[in-house]
Design a protein around this nucleic acid. Sequence first.
DNA 1: CCCGTCAACTGGATAG
DNA 2: CTATCCAGTTGACGGG
Length: 226
Amino acid sequence: MGSTSPSGLELTMAVPGLSSSSGSEGFGCGAGNGNAVRDLDMNQPASGGEEEEFPMGIVEEDEEERGAGTGGPHRPKKLRLSKEQSRLLEESFRLNHTLTPKQKEALAVKLKLRPRQVEVWFQNRRARTKLKQTELECEYLKRCFGSLTEENRRLQREVEELRAMRVAPPTVLSPHTRQPLPASALTMCPRCERVTAATATAARTPRPAAGAAANPYHPRRPSAAF
DNA sequence: CCCGTCAACTGGATAG
DNA sequence: CTATCCAGTTGACGGG
């Protein structure tokens, strides 16, 4: 799994036949935003180096109270998780997309965050995963729509052809004499209801190799790959 | 200045 | 009632 980007989403997609290469503009390669750099900038202690592993993890108590409590518009300064915090959170997310209260507590202690922050991170992470999956599904459905539209056009053309044949009854030439066959010699393909002389000749001609033998009324038509 | 990202909040739904 | 989840939103922040 090398492909988890910093904000990296592990994507398990339920869309059939979806290769990650084709729809990849929206994620994977494109998702490499500058988070790593940002994390470095934001979370490095300005000087003095490594006094703390997770520099801005814990918000001061009074500030936290103000933020959540009385609905005052004052929010604490935006927290940016350090690289290490993100890595550990991602790691546990990969193992489990939800946390038990114990796991949450343990992770919070380990990361020097409040349990609430761990909880929020998991909520947001689930939402991001779902969003990505929805985007993938959307791409897939668009492609379905495209090919169905194409198939529809093809069928419409076929209907037109059939209509035209009804207006002007067909003259079918005998494969042997090259003369028009009498109506009594003609027959209808039961599958597509096209008039042919097929059964008349099908009985006489030797069966061709496997594939073409399926329908004696017509040679095989290429079917739409779908 | 605008836009994308993301931590955090809000409110409704649901399970135990 | 409490705890948790989710969808939607807000606001801080960084980058173009």
